[in-house]
Simulated scan of single mutants.
Amino acid sequence: MNKLFTLILLFNMTFGMAQTYHFPEESSTHEGTWLQWPHHYQFGTEYRKRIEQTWIEMARELQSGEKVHIIAYDAAEKIRITDLLEKNRIPLKNIDFRIYPTDDVWIRDSGPIFVKDDKGRVLIENWGFNGWGGKFDSKYCDKVPARIGKDLGIKVIDLNEEMVNEGGAVETDGNGVLMACKSSVISQKKGATRTKGITQQDAEEMFEQYYGVSKVIWLDGVTGLDVTDMHIDGFVKFMNHNTMITMDEDGLFDMGLSEKDINTLYEATNADGKEYKKVYLPATKNKVKTAYGKQLDYKGSYINFYVANTVVLVPNYGDPNDKIANKIIQGYYPGRKVVGIDVRNLYENGGMIHCVTQQQPAGDILKSED
């Protein structure tokens, strides 16, 4: 981490000079949702065909309640995607296209982090992205936040040289608390290093300023368990500043959590020092089988859902527990329609709905020239 930057940050925080930013709770009103549409340029046509239906269904459900900003790899892809939406009778009124080359679809991790300043204006934080510690290509996706900022005229805070931070690696309760796994944020192990030399204190100071939190709860996580080195959004989500939704102990063990991490999670307290109320979702009853027939060796999580303006998109697996999970989630979002989205083929690649969506909160933007 840049030592000069750290000294400046500490000085500014000490003397109250640093602007702090607030990452709005996901359920607050959106201007829109950003999606990076699957393409064939990196992993081939079969890859695109296997997962594309998930994007079609997400676009269908999201467009009635907010803007849907679709990132297409190139002009030819924009035409192809437009034709696909029209064939599926999806209205284009709320669909907006941006043409940027991308490495893959995981915009939650590589895309812009939209925050608000102390005047409530929306701007972009452009954190570094290095393909989950160098496991995959990242050169195109890492440039997407800056390109969005330039095209929309939104101010961008460039944090690329200070810290690599993936959106799925952190969860916030919207009221001063952030939770993350050390394994996917500050690990220095080969193949998992996001920011060389970063310490826990460095990361906490960055989160305090750029997410607007006063408390960081750390789980150890497991380096190398999966591509993400155990992203938090696979097994816990804050529904509000008093409530978290997670899994029972057996489910968390299945996800790879240690007993220590489970205890830390269950005993976590909010900014007022009160233990979070917990809602428990099951894992899938069975190990997931893809839509094209491949048997995977692990169960599916329903925690990785996405809360939009009028709908809640929940990963579904063609499993008996789909209906149970959908019903539980619906009970906590009475003003929104819960929609199960088939993620079986996407899950083979390690992700679900939350991993491939990114919200832009409603509000006036802080213009780049301001």
Score class of each variant (00 low, 15 high):
Met1Tyr: 00
Leu4Glu: 15
Phe5Ser: 06
Phe5Ala: 08
Phe5Lys: 05
Asn12Thr: 14
Phe15Arg: 08
Phe15Ile: 08
His22Val: 09
Glu25Cys: 01
Ser28Gln: 03
Ser28Asn: 09
His30Gly: 04
Glu31Ser: 09
Leu35His: 07
Leu35Arg: 00
His39Gly: 02
Phe43Arg: 02
Glu46Phe: 02
Tyr47Ile: 01
Met58Arg: 11
Met58Asp: 02
Ala59Asn: 05
Ser64Phe: 01
Ser64Val: 00
Lys67Ile: 02
Val68Gln: 06
Ala75Tyr: 12
Glu77Leu: 10
Lys78Gly: 14
Lys78Glu: 15
Ile81Lys: 00
Asp83Pro: 04
Asp83Trp: 11
Ile90Val: 13
Leu92Tyr: 11
Leu92Cys: 12
Asn94Ser: 14
Asp96Arg: 04
Phe97Ala: 12
Ile99Ser: 00
Pro101Ala: 09
Pro101Phe: 05
Thr102Pro: 06
Trp106Thr: 05
Pro112Glu: 04
Asp118Trp: 13
Trp127His: 01
Gly128Arg: 06
Gly131Glu: 03
Gly131Trp: 03
Gly133Leu: 07
Phe136Thr: 01
Tyr140Val: 10
Val144Glu: 02
Gly149Cys: 07
Lys150Cys: 00
Ile154Phe: 14
Ile154Ala: 08
Asn160Cys: 10
Glu161Gly: 11
Glu162Ala: 07
Met163Val: 08
Ala169His: 08
Gly174Val: 11
Met179Asn: 10
Met179Phe: 10
Ser184Cys: 15
Ile186Gly: 02
Ser187Pro: 09
Lys189Ala: 12
Lys190Gln: 15
Gly191Asp: 10
Gly191Pro: 08
Thr193Asn: 10
Ala203His: 00
Met206Ala: 08
Tyr211Ile: 10
Val216Cys: 04
Ile217Thr: 03
Leu219Trp: 01
Leu225Thr: 03
Asp226Glu: 04
Asp226Pro: 04
Lys237Ile: 13
Phe238Ala: 10
Met239Trp: 08
Asn240Phe: 07
Met244Ala: 01
Asp248Leu: 06
Gly256Val: 07
Ser258Val: 02
Asn263Ala: 07
Glu267Gly: 09
Asn270Val: 07
Gly273Gln: 13
Lys274Val: 13
Leu281His: 01
Leu281Ser: 02
Lys289Met: 13
Gly293Gln: 03
Gly293Ser: 01
Gln295His: 11
Leu296Ser: 09
Ser301Asn: 13
Val307Glu: 08
Val307Ala: 07
Asn309Ser: 11
Val314Gln: 02
Val314His: 00
Gly318Pro: 13
Ile324Ser: 05
Tyr333Ser: 08
Pro334Ser: 11
Arg336Ser: 11
Lys337Gln: 12
Gly340Pro: 01
Asp342Pro: 12
Glu348His: 11
Asn349Tyr: 14
Gly350Tyr: 00
Ile353Asp: 00
Gln358Lys: 02
Gln358Arg: 06
Gln359Leu: 07
Gln359Cys: 08
Lys367Gln: 15
Glu369Leu: 14
Glu369Ser: 14
Asp370His: 14
